[in-house]
Amino acid sequence: MTDSGKRAERPEDLSRFVVERLNAGDVEGLVALYEPGAVLALPDGGVATGSDEIRRAYAHLVADRPVFTPGRQQPTLRNGDLALTSVRLPDGGVTVEVARRQPDGTWLWAIDQPRIPE
């Protein structure tokens, strides 16, 4: 079970939340990790822009209930209200994301590249 109402107090929390929500099939909880105008890179090379497109992408991804394994969080690089996050995936790939601090102090992703093959 996931707590999709839980907000990221640190940029690094987003990576943990995404795996929890993917494994729970929690599409709305996944969308809640992104700014309304965020962009998400898709496996086919396309881009999902905004909440509606990100919602459709995740609904398709979790439809068959795949299981996701957490990777190893890499050191976060911060510059004011921006943070560059990255996770080394168990299969050797890597993720790269840009998170932005929100007015309430929590963090949301603005840009998400969920898989860069090595």
Rank of each mutant, 00 (worst) to 15 (best):
R78M: 15
A38T: 09
V96T: 10
V31H: 01
V39M: 02
S4E: 03
A24L: 05
V96G: 14
P114D: 08
A63Q: 07
V98P: 07
T49M: 02
E35N: 06
I54F: 06
A24P: 06
T49C: 03
V67I: 15
R10V: 01
D91K: 12
L40S: 02
T2Y: 00
V27T: 09
V31M: 09
D26L: 04
P75M: 11
R21N: 06
H60K: 14
V31T: 11
G25M: 03
L77Q: 11
G80M: 12
L33Y: 08
R115A: 10
A99C: 06
S15N: 12
M1H: 09
A110C: 09
W109P: 00
F68G: 07
L82V: 15
P114N: 11
L42W: 05
T85R: 08
P114T: 09
G29V: 03
L61Y: 07
A8P: 13
G50N: 01
A41R: 11
G80L: 12
W109R: 11
A38E: 02
G92Y: 05
V47S: 07
Y58N: 14
L42T: 08
M1K: 07
R10Q: 15
D81L: 06
E9N: 05
L14N: 07
V67H: 09
T69Y: 04
R7P: 01
V96S: 13
T69N: 04
D26K: 02
E12L: 13
N23V: 04
L82D: 10
G25D: 06
R101A: 13
P117Y: 00
A59M: 02
P43I: 03
L42R: 11
